[in-house]
Simulated scan of single mutants.
Amino acid sequence: MLRDDDTLFAALIARDPSYEGFAYVGVKTTGIFCRLTCPARKPKRTNVVFFSCKDAAQDAGFRACLRCKPLDTKRPASGALEILRDKIKAEPDRRWSAEDLKALGYDASTVRRAFQREYGVTFAQYARSQRLGLAVSTLQQGGSVMDAQLDAGYESSSGFRDAITKLVGDVPVRMNARQVLAAQWIDTPIGAMLGVTDDEGVHLLEFAERKALPTEIARLRQRVGPIRFGQSKMLEALAHQVGQYFSGRAASFDIPVVQKGTPFEATVWSALQQVPPGETRSYGELARFIGRPEAARAVARANGANQVAVIVPCHRIIGADGSLTGYGGKLWRKQWLLEHERRAAATTNR
């Protein structure tokens, strides 16, 4: 249901991302329609009209904005982000400099802010994580520490060891004896997510902006093993299913989840996966479902400890009064996910 125009205009001024995909604005003076998050100069209140979907905006004669690209299924990212991600993927062993960025026509400080905003790390840190992931692969395949060091672009062995220790939680000489988890960023319409898997399944899937993400990574390293950035068949399957979900083509997941927790947490996480898309439950209802009616607060803590967002749908748990309660990925994303699932469920049930 489309909100009233005053609410939507306030969201337009604030560039509120919670309406991403569910509300669009048409500017009468230009004949163009945009996302509410469009960075273009804001029009006057009297010159706008709101639509619940892009088809309605087009049917009314409005053209899609070339800046915010409302017809695209993915949230528009900086052109630099897409181009530089592709270049890093094509040359994962390259050491990028400010001069390289300038040669491509980009300002280094602008690129830094764009990567920081999207992934929570700078461009240099993002590129380095890919180089280190390549270096870890060299070590796993029997290469020497020196080969891996040179592949990653480190002249100092101590510098390489320090960096790789921070990334995978172990020093190279001991790494062959431990399981190494594979990590990669997955883009979604509401922000980048970090996926971590092994051959058994998904250990972590979280939005980049989640404040607890560093703590979760540290816990995962301690419970399971070191982590590297790289590619794997399980990561490819995860990215595909996440893409299907966000595009509305699939409401559920069949990829295995293998996150570690206490027996009680595991029970709660299993119960969460039984809440149908398009529906919600309260903490008390979930506690009664697992046969522990007195444990609503413990259920809430287990819900908060979930490290596999969306697939283990902790966003479907709300307050007893129907309010949206805390969500590590930010409340606006919780609202977006619930609305996305309600619409998908309504379409399926027609």
Rank of each mutant, 00 (worst) to 15 (best):
T7E: 04
T7N: 03
A11C: 04
A11P: 02
A14R: 06
D16N: 11
P17F: 04
E20P: 05
F22E: 02
G26S: 03
V27D: 11
G31K: 07
R35L: 07
N47E: 10
V48L: 04
V49D: 05
F50D: 00
C53M: 06
D55M: 13
D59C: 13
C65Y: 00
L71G: 04
T73Y: 14
T73K: 14
T73C: 12
K74M: 14
K74E: 15
R75Q: 15
R75V: 14
S78F: 04
S78P: 06
S78I: 07
L84S: 08
D86N: 13
D86Q: 14
I88D: 00
K89D: 01
K89F: 00
A90C: 05
R94F: 03
R94A: 03
E99H: 12
R112E: 15
R113A: 09
R117Y: 09
E118C: 10
Y119W: 12
G120M: 05
V121Q: 10
T122Q: 08
T122C: 10
A124W: 14
Q125L: 10
Q125Y: 09
G133L: 00
V136R: 01
T138R: 09
L139P: 02
Q141E: 15
Q141R: 15
G143V: 01
E155F: 07
E155P: 03
S156D: 04
S157T: 08
F160I: 02
R161N: 12
D162W: 03
I164W: 00
V168K: 06
D170G: 10
V171Y: 14
P172L: 03
V173E: 13
N176W: 07
R178D: 13
A182H: 07
A182S: 14
A182M: 10
I186E: 02
D187P: 09
G191H: 03
A192K: 01
D199E: 15
D199G: 11
V202C: 00
L204I: 10
L204Y: 04
L205K: 01
E206F: 05
K211P: 14
K211C: 11
A212Y: 15
A218C: 06
I227Y: 04
G230H: 02
M234N: 04
L235A: 09
L238I: 09
A239N: 12
V242E: 05
A251L: 13
P256I: 02
V258R: 09
Q259I: 12
G261F: 02
E265M: 04
E265R: 01
T267G: 07
T267D: 12
S270H: 12
S270A: 11
A271I: 02
Q274Y: 06
E279S: 12
E279L: 09
T280P: 04
Y283N: 07
R288W: 08
I290Y: 00
A295I: 06
A298R: 10
V299W: 00
A305H: 09
V308Y: 05
I311D: 04
P313H: 06
C314M: 13
L324Y: 13
T325P: 03
G326F: 14
K330L: 06
R333L: 03
Q335M: 15
L337I: 11
E341S: 02
A344Y: 08
A346Y: 08
A346Q: 12
T347I: 15
N349V: 15
